[in-house]
Design a protein around this nucleic acid. Structure first.
Lengths: 243, 243
DNA sequence: ATTCCTCGGATTGTTGACAATCATACGACT
DNA sequence: AGTCGTATGATTGTCAACAATCCGAGGAAT
C-alpha cells in the first residue's frame, strides 16, 4: 500500500507563510488595521523579506490584506457594510455547495461529518467555550462546502469563513451574544442535516438561507440580507479592530 | 471641483503586472499548461524577477496559476470537470448579484448598461466577429455583478469570467458553435433584462439559471449543472490548450 | 538494446545590499 | 502661537548575485 505518499516537499514557502498569516488574521493575532512590518515578520518566520512579500501578495489578492504603496500592507478593516457583503457571498457559495451535495453527493458521509461538527458545538456550549463553539460552527460550513467537491467554491469559502471569523471576534465583545442564541443555532444546523438526510433539496436551501439570515441578524441587527442592496449604514466607521 | 483626483500612483507594481498576466491568460496569449519562465517575462516587463514573482503569487492564490516547487509556475489546465465547476460557481455568484440588484439596485441604470452589452453582442454577430461577441457576452455578466456593488462577488467573478473565457477559447476550435446559438444567446440576455426592468425577481433568477445551464450545454453537451455532482468524465484529459 | 549513472546547462529559490519613499521631530519664520 | 520647511530615521521597493534543484544528454555496464 503506497498510497498518499506523494507529498514530499511540494509546498512553496510562500504558501506555507500565507497559511500562517491567514491563521493569524483569522484568530485575531493580527487584528484589522494592523500594519505588517516586513522586517519583523520575516525575522519571526526565519526567512528573508522576499518569500514573505510573495506570501503577503497572495493575501492581497484574496482581499485579506490591503496594500498602500510605499506605505505597507494592512489587515483589512471590516466596515458595517462588509458584514452584509460577506454573508451575502457566503449564502451564495453555500447554496451552490448544498445543491451539489444534494445532487450526487455522498449524503450519508456528509451528514455524518456535519453531525460531528454540531456535536462539537453542543460540547463547546456545555463547557462555556465560545471560541470552540465558533470554530465548530465554521467547521460545519467548511465541511459542507468541502463535500461539494468544488475547488472554486472551496477557495472562495475559505476566504469568506476567515472574514466571518474576523467579524465574530470584532463584534463578540460588543454584544453579549453568548449563551443567548446558541440553542437556536444548534437547532438550525440540525434541521439542515435532517433535510440533507431526507434528500429534501428545497428544504435544505430554504433552511440554509434562513440560517444565514439569522446569522446576520445576530451579528448586525437591523441589517437584513433581504433588505435594500447595500444597507446604508454610515460608512467610514470600521468595526472595532484591535483590543 | 477637485473630485476624483486622488489616484496619484497608488498601484503596486505587482498589481500592474498581475493584471497584465490575467489579460494574457484570458486572451490565450498564455495558453493552458504554459510554463511562465521568470527570466523571459521579467525582461519583457522590464522589471527584475522580484516584482514579477510577487505578481505571479497573486495569480496562484486566484487559481489561475499552478505552482510546482523548484519546477516553475504553469497556467492551469482546464479539465472537462472544470467546465461544470466554473459554471456552477458563476451561477451562484451571479444569482447573488442579481438578488442584490433587484433589491435596492438602480434598475434603470443597470438595464441601460446591460442593453448596451447586448447591443454590442448583436453588432458583433452581424459582423461575424466571434471574439467581440464573446467579449460583449462576458461584459454583460461583468456589468451585472458590478451593479450589485459587492466587492467580494466582483472579486470572485473576475476570476471566474477569466476561466470562462479560457474555456471558450479552448473549445471554440473544437466545436463549430459559431452562428448557431447566438440568436438564442441574445434572446436569453434580453429576457433577463426585461425581467429586471419589470422588477420580477423570480423571473430574473429563473432565467439566469436557465441561461447558465444552456451555456454549459453549448460548451460541454451532456454535462448538466443539474446532473450528478461532479460529472465523471475521465479525468486527466485536459482540454486543448495551446494551438 | 536497455538500463543506470553521471555530468553540465538552465531554471527556480533565497538572500543581502542599495535606492526611493514616507513619517516624524525639530527649528526657523511670519 | 501657528505654520511652513527641513533633516533624520525607518520602512518599503527593487535589484543582482549566490545556492539549490531539476532536466536532459551522453556514456558505461549488463
Amino acid at each position: 500500500m503506497l498510497a498518499d505518499i506523494e507529498p514530499v516537499n511540494r509546498e512553496s514557502t510562500a504558501g506555507i507563510i500565507a497559511r500562517q498569516l491567514r491563521d493569524a488574521i483569522m484568530t485575531g493575532a493580527l487584528p484589522p488595521g494592523t500594519q505588517l512590518g516586513e522586517t519583523e515578520l520575516a525575522a519571526r518566520f526565519q526567512v528573508s523579506r522576499g518569500p514573505l512579500r510573495e506570501a503577503m501578495q497572495r493575501l492581497v489578492s484574496e482581499g485579506l490584506l490591503r496594500s498602500e504603496r510605499h506605505r505597507g500592507l494592512f489587515v483589512i478593516d471590516l466596515e458595517p457594510g462588509d458584514v452584509y457583503d460577506i454573508y451575502a457571498a457566503r449564502s451564495a457559495v453555500e447554496r451552490a455547495a448544498a445543491i451539489r451535495v444534494m445532487r450526487g453527493g455522498d449524503r450519508e458521509r456528509v451528514t455524518a461529518v456535519l453531525d460531528a461538527a454540531v456535536a462539537a458545538m453542543a460540547e463547546a456550549d456545555e463547557q462555556d467555550d465560545p471560541a470552540a463553539l465558533t470554530e465548530a460552527d465554521l467547521r460545519f460550513h467548511e465541511e459542507l462546502i468541502e463535500a461539494s467537491g468544488s475547488k472554486r467554491l472551496a477557495r472562495m469559502a475559505r476566504t469568506l469563513l476567515i472574514e466571518t471569523r474576523m467579524c465574530l471576534t470584532a463584534l463578540q465583545g460588543t454584544y453579549g451574544r453568548n449563551a443567548q442564541g446558541v440553542d437556536e443555532r444548534v437547532a438550525e444546523h440540525n434541521q439542515i442535516i435532517a433535510a440533507i438526510r431526507e434528500g429534501d433539496e428545497v428544504a435544505v436551501l430554504t433552511l440554509l438561507e434562513a440560517h444565514m439570515e439569522d446569522a446576520v441578524q445576530r451579528l448586525a441587527p437591523g441589517t437584513s440580507l433581504h433588505a435594500d442592496a447595500v444597507p446604508h449604514v454610515p460608512s467610514g466607521t470600521p468595526l472595532p479592530g484591535a483590543g
